[in-house]
Write a protein that binds this DNA or RNA. Structure first.
Length: 735
DNA sequence: GATCGTTCTATTTTT
DNA sequence: TAGAACGATC
């Protein structure tokens, strides 16, 4: 490799280059939507290794989603193969890595698995008996939030998450019970590394010695605990000299309700003194018209650092706001629009339908099914949330860590082995904090139950015996898939779910097979099993759904939240009504977050953007008169055109609303102000040097924002022209 | 432990 | 409206 070959720097714009080559204490990159931030981060990693001779091993780059982490790693390695030695992973998977490596220091079992919210609920209801289910899930939410805020049961300010003295006690009981299982929950993956580092100076030194560069992507989505962890990791308050670079967009922070704290990004420069700020505002994704709307909307927010995106692409087509009578008209309008464009060669996969609530997808599904428009929904029933998958995973988790009370309870009596809740309680009480199979064998149970336990333990032993203790003794030609398959067979789960399949026509068996297949890349060992479980619990994403839509030419139905990081050629943001978006209980900071969500939605669109708003909508089985979303008034004067009739009394700064019933295919009546467009308008008769006489039957803008017309010639042919470049060969007659 | 009828409730969800 | 959740019953 040549010592100096940064051709990859040539493709960067000025700000991107400045961000890549920045040196100093720390850097905050404010990266607007579509501004090429992944390119900047990956190039920076490559540049540091190649040009600044930073040891790749000493670079840590964290993101929030597995998908983003994979993409970042892949692109960085492409630029600089040595980046494969850097740690590029999600915050939580780094936490899992840290906790396994320093399990003793952190006080967890090396073989821990990660509890999700359901598991947490089971634990809460066992740690605090006789609580109604509703309260249990409330407590779980509060505990999760507390951990996101970096709060322990002993923390003074639990009221930050709405917790009082009672809650502190409940949190403590849960925590005690959780520790006795040896497992961790999601919050622990951040909070425990933070606490461990904070209380262990020697370990902290080691870590500071190891990580010299730390980068965090999507920093606007970080929570307090993550910010605290970053401070300990980097040793910023101890002058450890680590270079910290965070990238984010305060305008795209949409996970406040889950503990994300915009203030992390707003106050970064205070936490990391000497921080430089670079803004990336050149947008390579959307047309100028779309970005204008986005900017107008988000400038209504007060709590922001402020930036205005600049379109690198053409002006484009004005977004369209469509007023419709009912939600059924809304789905029909979308279907017609998509179908109409499809007839003209626009693939279904160009389109995404965005909505605030999952419930809104239903109407679109029905209509699309009816119209035979292929669609895919992002983010519904997740694979790993399915009953049969959870059952199999509970068995696998229990074999990894037989102290796992939650997994034990889930599987011990499924299929029925005569071990009811009271027997389960007896076993768990006797064996809290130890191998529960051992405890189960020791204590005295009813005849039926003890026979069941014998059976259960036999299965456990047989399955455990399949796994190699160390990597060297893994038999050739095997994989963890063999084990997962055997879990289905031996435990009776397969038989159990086969019955369900026959009764309800479900896909449980094939789901179990799919689970086994996904384990094929892991070795048949204890380590392989833990890696497999980690890969599952740390990637609960709606994997594949987006790629699926593109590869199979489907319309994407998706919640606004789920669109973050994605882009589509044509976007329809639906349900633009007060009460739906924004919800009517939103005010202050919450309203600003809703507005950011709108901003995220708008900036997903590359070429075309539509908003739909209904005068009437069924909500919770009731029909309601709706007011247009106040956000529509924030789109900015003249930044969009209107189809349909705005509800009475709703005046737009923007002005003109088309007459009643004027709902039509959006591209057919475009009013372009450009003189060329005026001249070559729809209906005009033209003469072409080569093709003869004809008429303009259609006028539109291309993806690049160029004015394009379709001409039908007397000879029968039809052809598209860009008049801007054809003014001499394509003549308008009668002028 | 399964099934049926009644009652209640109702965002968003990277890990 | 629709689903989950709970209690009563077999």
């Amino acid at each position: 490799m040549t010592d100096f070959s940064p051709q990859y720097l040539d493709v960067l714009n000025e700000e991107q280059l400045a961000a890549v080559t920045h040196e100093g204490k720390s850097l905050l990159i404010l990266a607007g939507a579509g501004s090429g931030k992944t390119r900047v981060v990956t190039t920076k990693i490559a540049w540091l290794i190649q040009h600044k001779h930073v040891d790749p091993y000493s670079i840590l780059a964290v993101t929030f989603t597995k998908k983003a982490a994979n993409e970042m790693k892949e692109r960085a390695v492409k630029l600089e193969p040595k980046a494969q030695w850097s740690q590029i992973r999600t915050f939580h998977s780094w936490g899992a890595y840290f906790l396994r490596r320093y399990a003793d220091e952190a006080g967890v079992d090396k073989n821990f698995t990660v509890y999700d919210e359901d598991d947490m609920a089971t634990l809460v209801s066992k740690a605090i008996p006789s609580l109604p289910k509703k309260e249990v899930s409330q407590i779980v939410r509060k505990i999760s939030l507390a951990k996101d805020y970096g709060l322990t049961p002993a923390s003074k300010n639990l009221e930050l998450v709405g917790g009082d003295g009672v809650f502190a006690g409940q949190y403590a009981l849960y925590q005690e019970r959780l520790r006795s299982t040896g497992n961790v929950d999601f919050g622990d993956l951040i909070l425990l590394p933070y606490l461990t580092l904070k209380n262990n100076e020697a370990l902290r030194r080691d870590i500071h010695f190891r990580y010299r560069v730390i980068m965090v992507d999507e920093y606007q989505d970080s929570n307090i605990a993550q910010s605290l962890l970053l401070q300990e990791l980097s040793g910023v308050n101890e002058n450890a000299g680590t270079y910290v670079c965070v990238v984010g967009d305060d305008d795209q922070s949409i996970y406040r309700f889950r503990g994300a704290e915009v203030r992390n990004i707003l106050e970064f420069k205070n936490q990391f003194p000497g921080t430089d700020l670079i803004r990336l505002v050149k947008n390579y994704r959307s047309t100028q018209e779309i970005l204008q709307c986005a900017d107008c909307v988000v400038s209504n927010n007060e709590g922001r650092l402020g930036k205005t995106l600049v379109a690198a692409r053409g002006k484009g087509k004005k977004p369209t706001l469509v007023f419709l009578p009912t939600q059924d008209d809304e789905t029909l309008f979308c279907a017609n629009l998509i179908e109409q464009q499809h007839d003209k060669g626009v693939p279904y996969s160009d389109w995404a339908i965005l909505y605030r609530m999952n419930a809104q997808s239903l109407g679109f599904e029905t209509t699309f099914l009816h119209s035979k428009i292929p669609y895919g929904i992002v983010g519904t029933l997740k694979f790993y949330d399915r009953e049969e998958i959870k059952d199999a995973l509970a068995w696998i988790s229990f074999i990894a860590n037989p102290k796992d009370e939650v997994a034990f309870r889930r599987i011990v009596n499924k299929p029925v082995r005569g071990i009811g809740p009271s027997s389960q309680d007896k076993i768990v009480d006797a064996g809290l904090g130890e191998d529960l199979t051992g405890a189960a064998k020791k204590i005295k149970l009813a005849k039926k139950a003890s026979e069941g336990i014998e059976d259960f333990c036999r299965i456990f032993d047989e399955l455990s015996a399949m796994l190699a203790d160390d990597e060297d003794s893994v038999p050739a030609g095997t994989s963890l898939a063999d084990f997962v398959k055997e879990v289905g067979e031996k435990t009776g789960l397969k038989e159990f779910h086969q019955m369900q399949d026959e009764i309800a026509g479900t896909q449980k068996i094939s789901n179990l097979e799919e689970l086994a297949n996904s384990a094929v890349q892991y070795p048949l060992s204890r380590k392989g099993l833990l890696d497999f479980l980690d890969s599952i619990s740390l990637d609960r994403s709606t994997q594949g759904a987006e790629e699926d839509a593109a590869s199979q030419d489907k319309v994407t139905l998706i919640t606004l939240h789920n669109t973050k990081g994605l882009e589509y050629k044509r976007v329809i943001i639906t349900g633009m009504e007060y009460g739906v978006f924004p919800r009517e209980d939103k005010a202050g900071d919450d309203l600003e977050e809703e507005r950011r969500l709108f901003y995220v939605g708008i900036t997903r669109a590359q070429n075309e953007l539509y908003f739909t708003s209904c005068a009437m909508r069924r909500l919770y089985g009731r029909s309601n008169y709706m007011q247009p979303s106040p956000f529509l008034n924030e789109l900015g004067k003249g930044n969009f055109r209107i189809l349909g009739e705005a509800p009475f009394g709703f005046n737009f700064a923007n002005g003109r609303a088309a007459g009643a019933g004027a709902i039509e295919g959006a591209s057919s009546s475009a009013a372009y102000s450009d003189p060329i467009a005026k001249k070559y308008c729809k209906g005009a008769m033209v003469y072409h040097d080569d093709w003869g006489h004809g008429q303009i039957v259609h006028a539109d803008l291309t993806d690049e924002g160029e004015y394009v017309v379709t001409v039908n010639f007397e000879t029968g042919g039809s052809k598209k022209f860009l008049p801007k470049y054809q003014s001499s060969s394509l003549l308008v007659e009668g002028t």
